[in-house]
Nucleic acid binder design. Structure first.
Lengths: 136, 136
DNA sequence: CACAATTGCGTAATGCTATAACGTGTGCAA
DNA sequence: TTGCACACGTTATAGCATTACGCAATTGTG
């Protein structure tokens, strides 16, 4: 039985490469952007990226941003609660800030159980502009 | 100046057709599914659907489900708070339930303002299985 | 050891989702 | 009547994701 959090260990080569690409990026990357960056490493097809991403998401090391069709490295790897992470996405500078809020998680959980909804995964993505980007 | 809620009035023909397709459906539809359904009405290209969808979303009559790349008719048209709607999506039966919760909206708003994030739009999508679908 | 089962990988092809770019027609207001 | 805004139609293209096939390495088991 493997532990919940497979840390940096026991990643395959492709998985490590994809995770590195995401970790080194300032913001979210699309699968095809990752592919282009890893062509120098020998990547040739989208599936090489998608397969690695699937695993990394499963391990909780990477999150998918649904509203962007893109991926980010988890900003607090090794922590719990990957099912409850949420994101603020700045539409001006592209910065993505991952956050986790207990009250929010609890509220969503209660809303679900109140209607007997068996909650598996939550997607919370806030779009707007961040403090550094004063939109006129 | 047009009112916030353009009800069923003053929709163009294409917009009406797309809205009807969504309203008659039991669940969310992809843009291409809508296109196929409306070929009989003379639709020929994706852009006809996407342009109508853009407007309908702008009017608050239709919502986009980011985690599904699909669209649903608003389940309480004419109401306020289209910026704060949220969804429970049953992965078993495909049913989508739209809901709105004041505490949730307030919490998200507070989380944003606390970090000087200028919130424009929120995406909240809960995935799981609904009461009617007892997953083993 | 031999075997089956699992897992990751590589490649090619395909399918689904969304937009760019161009031009037309209509209604309205300066 | 001129200019503008807007909806529309069409073609082409861009961007995102999966299906299908086969091979190689690993592991657990009888």
């Amino acid at each position: 039985m493997t532990s919940l959090a497979n840390l940096h260990t026991d990643l395959t080569k492709n998985q490590s490469l994809v995770l590195s690409a995401l970790s080194n990026a300032n913001g979210p990357l699309s699968a095809y952007t990752i592919l282009d960056e890893l062509r120098v490493e020998g990547f040739r097809a989208p599936l090489q990226v998608y397969r690695a991403l699937d695993k990394l998401v499963e391990f909780g090391l990477v999150h998918r941003l649904e509203s962007l069709n893109a991926f980010v490295a988890c900003q607090h790897p090794g922590c719990e609660g990957h099912e409850s992470s949420a994101f603020m996405i700045c539409d001006t500078c592209g910065h993505v800030e991952e956050f986790s809020d207990n009250a929010l998680t609890k509220r969503l959980s209660k809303l679900a159980t109140d209607v007997e909804f068996n909650l598996q995964k939550t997607t919370v993505e806030l779009r707007g502009s961040c403090g550094g980007c004063k939109t006129a």
